[in-house]
Amino acid sequence: MHDTNTRPFSISRVAIYATLIVAMLVYLIPVVVMLLNSFKTTGDIRAGNLLALPTTWTLEGWSKAWSSACTGVQCEGVHGFFWNSFRMTVPAVLISTILGSFNGYVLSKWSFRGSNLFFSLLLFGCFIPFQVIILPMAFTLGKLGLANTLTGLVLVHVIYGVAFTTLFFRNYYVSVPDALIKAARLDGAGFFTIFFRILIPLSTPIFMVCLIWQFTQIWNDFLFGVVFASGHGQPITVAINNLVNTSTGVKEYNVDMAAAMIAALPTLLVYIVAGKYFIRGLTAGSVKG
């Protein structure tokens, strides 16, 4: 450490930074292109190249994408679909996370006959591709009377997410010493008291991991959205597809880019706010007793 500080321009340091900068550029260029072009006029885009700065900066693309761009037959922008996505994602994330933490608690601290088998089967859920369950799920939602509803979409995401959230929480709670549970039981705490008073307060990092993971997964989902929702109920991912594919005359790349940015912002925000917990939660070892 000391050595590298006194010689800041060693060859290895330069190499490390060069590699990092190249990697950063590779990842940033698409974002830069999107951002730059979302602030251009359509004429500007057609005249210049993709990487050039806008000749005139304008929010026209953003406002059109938000409130008046055509997604199929209606031309009301993506704002309605943006809120759809929120109404779908927030409950789905919360419900699946809460269920996962509860499952994890039971599987790690109150193992029952066959709990390991149960956990293994649940893990299976993490590896089932979306496409496989579309038909049976459509059938089930139809039977439940939830076809083409937001509730149905939330249900699908909760079911799909519980496998992951249970895995996260179970592995986190396994590292919590059993003696803690024993001590609480002798102190007179029951099943729920131990969960809410002892384990939940310990769970902030893994809650953050779960929230980020689930939020990203559910917000970014396209397949379930396009299959199990329709018309005004669709999430923003589907709306963007519709917006880009609706061709009435000139292709408005600035609007497309702005709409894509709007769709990407919430996940970006969640990661910025809770990101430090994400790393911490993933690497969290045992709790010091």
């Binding site: 010493p177 003696a179 803690l180 024993k182 001590a183 609480a184 002798l186 008073r197 002892i198 307060p201 310990l202 709790v287 010091k288 007793g289």
Partner: peptide
């Protein structure tokens, strides 16, 4: 019955 554990098992958040 009260018990003192080898790892102390103190509630870490309290």
């Amino acid at each position: 019955i009260a018990m003192v554990f080898q790892s102390y098992a103190l509630y870490p958040t309290m």
